[in-house]
């Protein structure tokens, strides 16, 4: 863990409680049920991931973009801020902050390839960039579990080959809200705990020796289990159903 996480804006300003997160997308609740809204929010995490992959961005930049997107909608709504435009803009902004910069023009073109109904252009992204920056309160540095994973895996005694499974779980965690609730090392440990279940390894003794709040680690693990259950039940990648939900929203400035 970087020495300065504890003094960062991520730690001091942007670790929230569950009640705060429940307040996300305030106006959208008029048009969608909680399950529908959760489905759509999860969908846009996939959109950012898929676009990031298409642009060949590094995973850390993609994860940063997803965190930006979640923070943006804590106080804003899809009806006022078209979510695909915001998603693309978050990815564009993240590519600059993480210094694996891509072009706004290229972001728009790639997004169009993935989603033929996406009609925003480069200039829309460049304008939206200002609003995203402002809604983030200019807090751009985001910490992630990736860096600490190898160290924890080594000390836990888990097989080095299991890093791929754990890494995949960490990536999946960005489709939940654990990145808004817990410090990255807690998220990392929660993912390792879940991974150890899947791999049928007992690491409870090792975890108990760490100086961390076990309750939080269990909760991260549980949030992920809940997410996998949700994903299985809700067929999150069903495009026609997602379009139906999207069209329930009277989105301003829809193109």
């Amino acid at each position: 863990m970087a020495a300065n996480f504890w003094e960062s804006s991520h730690c001091t300003e942007w670790l929230l409680d569950r009640n705060k997160i429940e307040e996300s997308n305030p106006k959208d609740k008029q048009y969608l049920t909680p399950i529908e809204l959760k489905k759509l929010r999860t969908h846009y995490c996939f959109v950012i991931q898929n676009l990031g992959n298409a642009l060949k961005l590094r995973q850390r930049a993609i994860s940063t973009a997803i965190v930006y997107f979640k923070r943006f909608y804590l106080k804003n709504s899809f009806v006022d801020c078209e979510p695909r435009l915001v998603a693309v803009t978050c990815l564009y902004l993240s590519s600059k902050v993480e210094e694996c910069i891509t072009q706004a023009k290229k972001c728009a073109a790639k997004m169009k390839e993935i989603d033929h109904s996406f009609n925003y252009l480069m200039n829309d992204i460049l304008e939206c960039e200002f609003f995203v920056l402002e809604e983030l309160d200019f807090c751009l540095i985001i910490y992630h579990p990736y860096k600490s994973l190898p160290f924890y895996l080594q000390s836990s005694g888990l097989d080095p080959a299991s890093i791929e499974i754990i890494w995949g779980i960490v990536n999946d965690s960005y489709r939940t809200d654990v990145c808004l609730l817990y410090p990255p090392f807690v998220v990392g440990l929660g993912c390792i705990l879940l991974g150890s279940y899947l791999l049928k390894k007992d690491i409870k003794q090792w975890l108990s020796e760490l100086n961390v709040e076990m309750k939080d680690i269990w909760e991260v693990s549980k949030d992920l289990i809940d997410y996998y259950e949700f994903e299985k039940q809700q067929s999150l990648q069903n495009q026609s159903e997602l379009d139906l939900l999207y069209n329930k929203l009277p989105i301003r400035n829809k193109k």
Binding site: N4, Q103, A104, L126, L140
Partner: peptide, 19 residues
């Protein structure tokens, strides 16, 4: 077509965290 510069992002991103 490039929006805000990398220079601006470095200043904002870092100075927001430094004290």
């Amino acid at each position: 077509g490039e929006g805000l510069s990398l220079t601006a992002y470095r200043e904002i991103g870092l100075l927001k965290e430094l004290s």
